[in-house]
Amino acid sequence: MRAADEAALHRVARRRARQDVQRKERVDVRYSVDEKTDILAEARRLGLAGAHLVGAIVMAHLNGDLTLPEQRTTTDDLVDELAALRTQVAKIGTNVNQIAHRLNAGADPHPVDTAVLAEAGRVLTLARQAVAAIDTTADVAATQRQAA
C-alpha cells in the first residue's frame, strides 16, 4: 500500500464520529473470504471494528472526502504523501527526544555525551522545521484543491 493510500484511509477511518442515536439501519454486503480477511485485518491494524472501517470509507466517499482510485487527483496523492512524510519525520523527532532524555537522565556522563546532545538538539530543530514546512505545504495543496 502506498503511503498516500494509507494516510487517506487512516484519515477517513478516524474521522467518522459517533452519533447520539445508535445506528440501526443495515446494508448487507457480500465479500469473498479473502476480502473479508483483508478488511478485518486492516480494521484491526487501525484499531477499529470492521463495520466501522467499511462504514467510514463508504460515507467518506459519499461525502466527497475519499475518491475511488480512478477519481484521485495528483493533489490528493500529494496531500496524503505529505501526511505520511510528516508522520515519519515526527517519529524521528520523537526518537531524538528519547535519546536526549536518556543522556540527560543522570548517571555519570561520558565525554562524548555533550557532543551527542548537541547533535541531537540540532537534529530535533531540523525535524521540527521539516514538520512545519510539510504542514504548510500540505495546507497550501489542500486549500488549492478545495478552491478548484
Rank of each mutant, 00 (worst) to 15 (best):
Gly93Ile: 15
Ala118Gln: 15
Val12Leu: 07
Lys36Met: 08
Ile57Cys: 05
Thr94Gln: 14
Leu66Glu: 00
Ala51Thr: 11
Val112Ser: 02
Glu6Arg: 08
Asp113Trp: 12
Gly93Arg: 03
Leu117Lys: 03
Glu119Pro: 10
Tyr31Arg: 12
Ala4Trp: 11
Leu117Cys: 09
Arg15Glu: 02
Leu82Asn: 02
Pro111Glu: 11
Arg128Asp: 13
Ala7Ser: 06
Ala8Lys: 00
Thr125Leu: 15
Leu40Trp: 01
Asp20His: 12
Val123Arg: 01
Ala115Met: 12
Pro111Ala: 14
His110Gln: 14
His61Asp: 03
Gly106Lys: 08
Glu81Cys: 05
Gln144Ser: 13
Ala141Gly: 07
Val116Met: 02
Leu9Asp: 00
Arg44Asp: 07
His61Lys: 10
Lys91Ser: 12
Arg11Pro: 04
Val140Leu: 11
Thr73Gly: 01
Ala105Pro: 12
Glu119Ser: 14
Thr74Val: 11
Glu70Pro: 13
Asp20Tyr: 15
Leu62Gln: 13
Arg45Lys: 04
Ala100Cys: 14
Gly106Val: 15
Ala8Thr: 04
Ala142Arg: 13
Val21His: 11
Ala8His: 02
Thr87His: 10
Asn97Trp: 09
Arg14Thr: 08
Thr143Leu: 04
Ala51Ile: 05
Val116Asp: 00
His110Leu: 14
Glu119Trp: 08
Gln19Gly: 06
Ala3Arg: 04
Met1Gly: 10
Gln146Met: 06
Arg11Tyr: 06
Arg45Trp: 01
Ala115Gly: 10
Lys36Ala: 09
Gln71Phe: 15
Thr136Arg: 15
Asp65Glu: 13
Leu126Cys: 12
Ser32Trp: 07
Leu40Arg: 03
Asn104Asp: 12
Asp65Pro: 05
His10Ser: 04
Leu9Val: 05
Val54Met: 00
Asn104Gln: 13
Leu78Ala: 12
